[in-house]
Design a protein around this nucleic acid. Sequence first.
DNA 1: TTTATGCTTGGGAGCGCTCCCAAGGAGGGT
DNA 2: ACCCTCCTTGGGAGCGCTCCCAAGCATAAA
Lengths: 343, 343
Amino acid sequence: MTRPLNLEEVGRRAGVSRSTVSRVVNGGPNVSSETKRRVEAVIAETGYRPHAAARSLASNSTGVIGLVIPSAVATLFDDPYFGRLILGISSATNDVSMTLALFLFGAGPDESSIISRVVTPGLVDGVIVTATTRGDPLIDHMQGTSMPFVVVGRPDNAGSTFCVDVDNRAGARTAALHLAGLGRRRPALIAAPSNTTAGVDRRNGFLEGLAEAGLSVESRVAEGDWSQESGRDAMARLLADRPDAVFVASDRMAVGALRAIREAGLHCPGDISVVSFDGIVPPDLTSPRLTSVVQPVTEVGERAVRLLTAVIAGASTPEHVVFPTELAVRESCGATPTAEPGA
Amino acid sequence: MTRPLNLEEVGRRAGVSRSTVSRVVNGGPNVSSETKRRVEAVIAETGYRPHAAARSLASNSTGVIGLVIPSAVATLFDDPYFGRLILGISSATNDVSMTLALFLFGAGPDESSIISRVVTPGLVDGVIVTATTRGDPLIDHMQGTSMPFVVVGRPDNAGSTFCVDVDNRAGARTAALHLAGLGRRRPALIAAPSNTTAGVDRRNGFLEGLAEAGLSVESRVAEGDWSQESGRDAMARLLADRPDAVFVASDRMAVGALRAIREAGLHCPGDISVVSFDGIVPPDLTSPRLTSVVQPVTEVGERAVRLLTAVIAGASTPEHVVFPTELAVRESCGATPTAEPGA
DNA sequence: TTTATGCTTGGGAGCGCTCCCAAGGAGGGT
DNA sequence: ACCCTCCTTGGGAGCGCTCCCAAGCATAAA
């Protein structure tokens, strides 16, 4: 009969006690080098690995962080945004030797069951919540628990939470000033959903920038739902108003907008300048290549993990990290000589 | 002083014992309805949730399954494949009330550390491994452990493992027959990396189909690395040989190929028919819309979870699930009247 | 009435670990 | 030679749960 491979057994084989093995495993101090050597030999030989659940129970810490993405799951990964975010978060969790648990869900009944699963004690040490919609009940729910969490994005009730966001407002403002600087006089806006804080911030930032330049969108505003189709539809509608520039609140919608422009027999950037937000669609995918306000998604993810570990460690004064964006000027705005490689 | 909220405490408040509360929580039998009511009232009122780690330790099962994606992480989510797969797996995981842990890693030193983390006892009940490359050491490693696992894809040493795959070979063969049926006589192939089983299967299936139709690619073969750029480069090279059709082993590479065709001043499908594999790029993204061999990625993910739960439950005779593919005929092959909407 | 049967309930043991404290031994100071 | 300190080691207690068994009790059968 083979006995279970646990601390006690490793200790037995190395001729020491459970406690000593534990100290070796955890790199603890006060272990003679000779003992350490012997124990490590046994560990290497047996392939012993500490039991995660037992460790969690005893130490009251699991080494797991949860990532909660509440969203219309179907379209989730058509947008590279979440993929990049997961990448950043995953890489940062690996760096700190933690494990990432993923909680994805759409609307409906599974929502509440998943939310309650997230806050199960002994499952995760903390949670990163992606907040996309305004007045998200998830945030309120999390605040009612003792589970450490940080928000990616800007919840509208951000006051008392830790969050990591990009400066959507300033980025959009930059886009407005850029278009104005190119001499465009009839700007249009394809906004993101106004029930998201990112959508609101980008809209306001753009309008603010226009105002500074003495411009206005007047009635040249349409709202999309992040999807490419909605961008195409919105652009098609806006074209009736003969804009000479458009700011599209996301890359994906901008791809649709470019298509609508082409379909209307117009030329970008000749007839109309396009600037979008995200900087997440591979530039070569579109023609002309998109000028876009780039947000550092991966860095946001990494920072969220670092912030969360701080919260888990006991940080208590809410911290709001805001990353700057950067305007990547390519051909679609008309600022550079239109040297579309090929096409 | 507030005492910890555990089974004992809930029992104390309801006037019953730990064991009885446990039975109620787990829907066990042999509990009088009156007792059950009282206990449930206390649970609702206190918001008690069982401690996951304690439960895992005692029951020797964690309720977590791991998803291991070893890949060049940087490009991971540019391809919608993994996103879809995660979606399917996540959804199936939710259905069975389990939690999904994600292990992403690229090459390098983190590889071994993550692999060993995956097999930590008490962390996950089982693992889904995505096998992309041939002779993947990860599979061998997993076989050396007692951790239940299933493979998504076809490992080259599949004999003794559980795996879920799509019929890459048959799908590619269908593509060949389709192109032959359209009267094309100079087919070309842009293959996926030959160090992946999917790449090999798609290549062989295509060549097999051509042979059946009495055709051959001769020297019109190039190999890409799944990326769009590689598809573009491969196509550009192949065009010198004046093919009248091309099978591209993935949608992403096909997007690049379409671009190369355009850049060469040629027309698809007029001058050259294109059929790709995956069915994962939104059709409207390309012009013309891609004819593609569609693989049911989401179903694969769901099935992998179901299979894994079976393995965890003790299934022991290796099972190989192979999903059929389906050819989605759109404009790029030239089979339908080229009614490109717009463009 | 007595014995058997089943349902309900409580409590002990144990999962594998961490944390803490006490015991033993080596070494340095006086 | 002695004491005190520091390093090293072992073992008890306990984390919150599940599993199992025995005890209590009501009801049915003899």
